[in-house]
């Protein structure tokens, strides 16, 4: 039995009367790429924010790396990396300065920062850009720099919130290559996306609609189960089914309404 990295039990988050995440139970294993699919507004970002300690759950349980999200959110922050769709870098700092800054925030010493900086420049092929303002970088490079900064402190779990939105297909493939290398070194990846071809890269995927899980399995098994060739088709079928349920509710629920 592999070690569990992230575990939730009946996790719920409400915003007023709106239920963004509804009774979610998941287990993510060490060294797994766990893909989290859903249309916009399905509750992906809310889920990730709760696990990173940015948002308090309304009810239910959740642990990250064995630490409780309610009581130990500050300890969790030491062992996780986080990269959002905004590639949160300082655009008025240079590439090097961004790395130095995040290195300093994670208590890395100068030697470690230096080593990491060289690694990032080498693996991302961006040494020439060291003194370039981040603002002037092409989007694909910004994304890779953001990933590099999120991995500076060798986190055990990496949360990626739609990390490839806006970049071209080539950059997206390069990005996933780095993700696979990172997993090989022992990191767990928790990634949200709405690019279905990316879902194929994941070990297991988890599809959410309106805050609820509607599927959770490996891409191969899901494709077999719904007899589809791609994750794209699986996703569309599942979401359409959900929508039919909503527009043609059960007769008894209709009675209750009236």
């Amino acid at each position: 039995m592999p070690e569990i990295s992230v575990k939730t039990e009946n996790l719920v988050r409400n915003f007023g009367s709106f239920v963004a995440v509804n009774q979610v139970n998941i287990e993510v294993y060490q060294k797994e790429i766990f893909g989290f699919l859903g249309a916009n507004g399905a509750g992906k970002t809310t889920m990730i924010r709760m696990l990173c300690g940015l948002l308090k759950p309304s009810s239910g349980k959740a642990t990250v790396g064995g630490l409780d999200v309610y009581r130990q959110s500050e300890q969790i922050k030491r062992s996780i990396g986080y990269m959002s769709q905004k590639f949160s870098l300082y655009e008025d700092l240079t590439v090097e300065e961004n790395i130095n800054f995040y290195g300093g925030i994670y208590d890395l010493n100068q030697k470690r920062i230096q080593k990491k900086r060289d690694e990032i420049f080498f693996s991302l092929g961006m040494g020439d850009y060291a003194r370039t303002l981040t603002y002037d970088l092409p989007l694909g490079f910004k994304q890779r720099l953001a990933l590099g900064c999120a991995l500076l402190h060798d986190p055990r779990i990496l949360f990626l919130d739609e990390p490839t939105s806006g970049v071209d297909p080539k950059a997206r493939r390069d990005f996933w290559e780095i993700i696979h290398q990172t997993v090989a070194l022992g990191t767990t990846i928790f990634v949200t996306t709405h690019f279905m071809e990316e879902a194929e890269y994941c070990h297991r995927v988890f599809i959410m609609d309106a805050g609820k899980i509607i599927a959770l399995d490996t891409p191969t098994k899901l494709k077999n189960r719904y007899k589809k060739k791609s994750m794209q088709e699986v996703f569309v079928t599942l979401v359409e089914k959900q929508q039919e349920k909503k527009t043609n509710p059960m007769p008894d629920s209709n009675d209750k309404m009236s």
């Binding site: 990173c52 300690g53 940015l54 500050e74 922050k77 030491r78 996780i80 986080y82 959002s84 905004k86 590639f87 949160s88 870098l89 300082y90 655009e91 995040y102 925030i105 994670y106 208590d107 949360f159």
Partner: peptide
């Protein structure tokens, strides 16, 4: 620009 959120997930 989202960097505050990024800082909030650091120690």
């Amino acid at each position: 620009i989202g960097t505050l959120e990024q800082l909030m997930v650091t120690p």
